[in-house]
């Protein structure tokens, strides 16, 4: 039992991290009022870019940086469409999914199915790693796991404790009031989507460079969609996103562990839990008062200042 728990807990951060990074990225976009459905495609592009760069002989950190840049680059047409031209965000986001998935397939074909050596666990002393239960969870992890948690804390502080965060949230809640207070609505949205895309790209790159150390088509496997759900589940709060990522990632991590025990588990039903939980949360919140919901008030809508 201890052995099982140790292994499960040890694998949990690896499952948690991409979900956390992607949902933090989305959280930035959505707090500024931009619904970015493109996350699944942007993650795929990040995963592919990371793998290609590592296979080309560059270091893992270069690969992660390249993935974030690729993610930002692919989001530029999306930003242009929804922020500057106020195109409807839902179809524009779906188009971004297609472009991201398509590019990752087209550009990553030569890199597919080639194992490589990616991110390594931080070199903690063996005695720590071998601690029962929490040893592997805490001390057999790579730097990105720690970084993701730090980013979550920074995001929470940045959004809720700085003037820039206040303005960014104002843009997503009530752009007319933000505009009246002198905030450049579109600039803040662009900054939010750039930061968001970078984090989403990093999340994707972590899947290939960090987790499986191989790139295959379709390896994102719905994690982008789960991240969209996770943001709702976390009610647009970065710290709650950590809890959500642990919960959703924990459920995901459980499946291979249970299978390793040779148990007959309803794998697919277990995988449904994040989705069903999120729908449940949405329903419960809708029954409550309006103030209980923290969905940004202007999410997904286009703000156009009435011309004077």
């Amino acid at each position: 039992m201890i052995e099982f728990l140790t292994a499960w807990l040890g694998s949990l951060p690896g499952f948690m991290t991409p979900l956390l990074l992607a949902s933090l990225g989305l959280l930035f976009c959505e707090r500024a009022g931009v619904l970015n459905l493109g996350v699944e495609g942007v993650m795929a592009l990040g995963a592919m870019t990371g793998a290609v760069v590592v296979l080309a002989g560059y270091g893992t950190w270069t690969a992660l940086a390249a993935a974030t840049l690729a993610a930002i680059a692919v989001s530029i047409p999306f930003m242009l469409a929804v922020i500057v031209f106020r195109a409807p965000q839902i179809p524009a986001g779906l188009a971004l999914v297609a472009i991201g998935l398509g590019l990752s397939e087209a550009l990553g074909r030569d890199a597919a199915h080639k194992p490589f050596s990616g991110l390594q666990a931080l070199p903690w002393p063996d005695t720590l790693v071998e601690l029962p239960l929490v040893g592997r969870m805490l001390f057999e992890q790579d730097a990105i796991v720690i970084l993701a948690l730090i980013i979550a804390v920074i995001a929470a502080r940045g959004l809720f404790r700085t003037p820039q965060g206040l303005r960014l949230r104002a843009v997503g809640e009530d752009p007319a009031t933000a505009d009246a207070a002198g905030v450049d609505v579109q600039l803040y949205q662009i900054v939010a989507v750039v930061i968001g895309s970078a984090l989403i790209g990093l999340a994707g790159a972590y899947l290939s460079v960090g987790g499986s150390q191989i790139w295959t088509e379709g390896m994102v496997a719905g994690r982008g969609w789960i991240s969209l759900a996770l943001v709702v589940f976390a009610q647009w709060m970065p710290i709650r996103a950590i809890l959500g990522a642990i919960l959703f990632g924990g459920a995901e991590a459980l499946i291979p562990r249970l299978q390793a025990l040779g148990l007959e588990v309803p794998v697919y039903f277990l995988s449904m839990t994040p989705y069903l939980l999120t729908i449940g949360v949405l329903l419960i919140l809708s029954l409550g008062t309006r103030t209980a919901q923290s969905e940004p008030g202007f999410l997904g809508r286009a703000y156009i200042r009435q011309d004077r």
């Binding site: 999914v97 297609a98 472009i99 998935l101 398509g102 590019l103 990752s104 397939e105 087209a106």
Partner: peptide
Amino acid sequence: GIVLIIQG
């Protein structure tokens, strides 16, 4: 993937 890119 090209067909996806084009549709996008």
